[in-house]
């Protein structure tokens, strides 16, 4: 493999990694507060892609506005999902909530099949984004650079929000100690709603950008990235936003480079994340950046 090829794969890996990172943040935020694997998160990501598709095909709104509107709308759907599927179960045993999450994911996927149809749809990429640039012999699609850029901008905004605002502080307090935070007068339901909105919004941004990079929409497209991004969150240390980003990049880069270097392992691409997960869980059960917890009686 020449150096040029390597650079191309590296660019692809980074852009896939940043997509994974965006989705993984939603998992890690929700898990940090509710201790819940939001299995439906991957399907929220799928909805983001489809809403953009319908916005561009059937309205005359400019594409960049559709991108933003679709992401916000998906964020609101995520919020609604929490109200319906998780809020009634706030005090129920965790396995119950997990089953509800699985049910929600199942519902969204099949709802997608019924409403959007089971056949793949071609994502309408705006011409501005569909350009190939030539960088010293390497031709790379411009979207490969745009994706990491947007991801970094969103990450900076999120870090500011979590560390500097009052709501962000409440979020951190809730994930540190749910009960005490509640006693301190934090409006738990409001914070959880905001968390779901932000997580789903980021997943939807991921979905829109996924569509521009891999322009094919399927109702089940969220299942695999959804699970992989949860794995990314676990690898980085669940509950930790920096960890989710790190995990996302490790997974994205790892996947692309695995296929690039060992082309006979191409078929095993989807297994890579799971193997990595099991290894990391066995070596460091709390993830790379996770804090060590002690068992209390």
């Amino acid at each position: 493999m020449s150096g040029m090829d390597f650079l191309q794969h590296l660019a692809n890996g980074i852009s896939l990694g940043s997509l994974y990172a965006l989705i993984a943040i939603g998992y890690t935020m929700v898990y940090g507060i509710l201790r819940l694997i939001n299995f439906a998160h991957g399907d929220i990501f799928m909805l983001g892609g489809y809403l953009t598709f319908y916005g561009i095909m059937f309205t005359s709104i400019p594409w960049w506005l559709v991108f933003i509107l679709a992401s916000v709308l998906t964020g609101l759907i995520g919020l609604l999902l929490e109200k319906i599927a998780y809020k009634p179960l706030r005090d129920a045993p965790r396995i119950t909530v997990l089953i509800s999450a699985i049910g929600a994911s199942f519902f969204l996927q099949n709802f997608g099949i019924v409403v959007f149809g089971g056949r793949p749809k071609a994502f309408p990429i705006p011409d501005v984004l569909n350009k190939v640039v030539n960088l010293g012999g390497v031709s790379i699609n411009i979207i490969t650079f745009i994706i990491p850029t947007i991801t970094i901008i969103l990450l900076i905004a999120l870090t500011y929000f979590i560390n500097k605002t009052k709501t962000g502080m409440a979020m951190r307090a809730l994930s540190r100690d749910y009960e005490t935070a509640r006693l301190m007068g934090i409006d738990v339901n409001k914070i959880i709603s905001i968390t779901f909105f932000i997580g789903s919004f980021l997943a939807a941004v991921g979905g829109v950008m996924w569509g521009t990079k891999y322009p094919q929409l399927l109702p089940l497209m969220g299942a695999m990235p959804g699970i992989k991004c949860f794995i990314a969150a676990v690898i980085g240390g669940i509950g930790n936003i920096g960890g989710a980003v790190l995990g996302g990049f490790i997974l994205g880069l790892g996947e692309i480079l695995l296929v690039a270097f060992f082309s006979n392992l191409t078929g095993y691409r989807d297994a890579f994340a799971f193997v990595l997960l099991i290894i990391i869980l066995l070596v460091k059960p709390t993830g790379l950046l996770g804090e060590k917890t002690t068992e209390k009686v």
Partner: peptide, 17 residues
Amino acid sequence: PGMRMVIFSMILMAVVI
């Protein structure tokens, strides 16, 4: 096609909730 599973997952969630 797929309606069956929609109904099915709704039953699952209703039971759980």
